[in-house]
């Protein structure tokens, strides 16, 4: 069963329909890329999933482990995220690295990371996770007491990712993590995404950089003005003539 299943999603901004009834799914362990031109609706989809914009119709189903069960048998239940208030979604195991990073610029790096663990009450576990995040992003540890607004763009992206990881997500949604970064940093960020995936976290990746996104994804969806026009295996899409022409600049 899919970890995240979006069915016939429609989103409006006022009278303008931004998402015109799309369906897709993300299985546990996958890296799924969502690619498309500016204004295609990628960010809107992620915002709809995590409750930042209201959904007109459709369903967003998320598999959540059932609490209170014994550990041996893994029992899950399906939660409709449309009926879940935005602030309750992260504790279900879904983190969102939003477009433009949206770190808390007046808070310190450490305070930002702690905000990422806001819903987690076990202090010891939080410290453990913090250590892991620092290990992945040594730069953040060096700057932990620095006000986040003074970080460089690349560092801010790392902070946004670290902050999301602080919540122990089972799935992480990333909105253009490579935006505005130098080629070396883009490489670095994509390596980190690969690592995150390897460590068992499912990834839904929105990217302008279609080439890089397809190179690390298992499957991908191509979005055009609110519709999914193409979907399939990432490697196959990379060789698709229309994708090559429109998104890979070949």
């Amino acid at each position: 069963m899919a970890l995240l299943k979006v069915t016939d999603l429609q989103v409006y901004y006022g009278v303008i329909q931004a998402i015109k009834g799309i369906s897709f799914e993300v299985n546990a362990g996958e890296v799924i890329a969502l690619i498309g031109a500016n204004g295609a609706g990628k960010t809107t989809i992620l915002h709809a999933i995590t409750g930042l914009v209201p959904v007109k119709s459709g369903s967003i189903e998320f598999e959540v482990p059932k609490t209170g069960m014994n550990d041996k048998d893994i029992v899950t239940e399906t939660v409709n995220l449309r009926k879940t208030p935005a602030h309750k979604i992260v504790s279900l195991g879904m983190a969102h690295v939003p477009e433009g990073r949206r770190i808390f610029s007046q808070l310190t790096v450490l305070e930002n990371l702690k905000m990422g663990a806001y819903t987690r009450n076990d202090k010891e576990e939080m410290e453990q996770t913090l250590k892991k995040v620092y290990k992945r992003f040594p730069r953040l540890e060096e700057r932990k007491n620095q006000v986040a607004g003074t970080l460089s763009g690349g560092e801010q992206q790392m902070l946004a990712m670290g902050r999301a990881l602080m919540s122990h997500p089972r799935i992480i949604l990333m909105d253009e993590p490579s935006m505005g970064l130098s080629p070396i940093l883009v490489e670095e960020i994509f390596d980190i995404i690969k690592e995150i995936s390897k460590s068992g976290t499912t990834v839904l990746l929105v990217e302008q950089n279609a080439k890089k996104a397809l190179s690390i994804a298992n499957r991908a969806y191509v979005l055009e003005t609110g519709n999914i026009v193409l979907e399939g295996d990432a490697k196959e899409l990379m060789n698709d003539e229309s994708v090559k022409k429109a998104y890979l600049g070949e």
Partner: peptide, 17 residues
């Protein structure tokens, strides 16, 4: 801290829970 986070960015604050 949550209060400062909300005053800066309500959407991002919601994503934190």
């Amino acid at each position: 801290s949550a209060m400062r986070a909300v005053s800066e960015d309500k959407g991002a604050a919601q994503l934190m829970g």
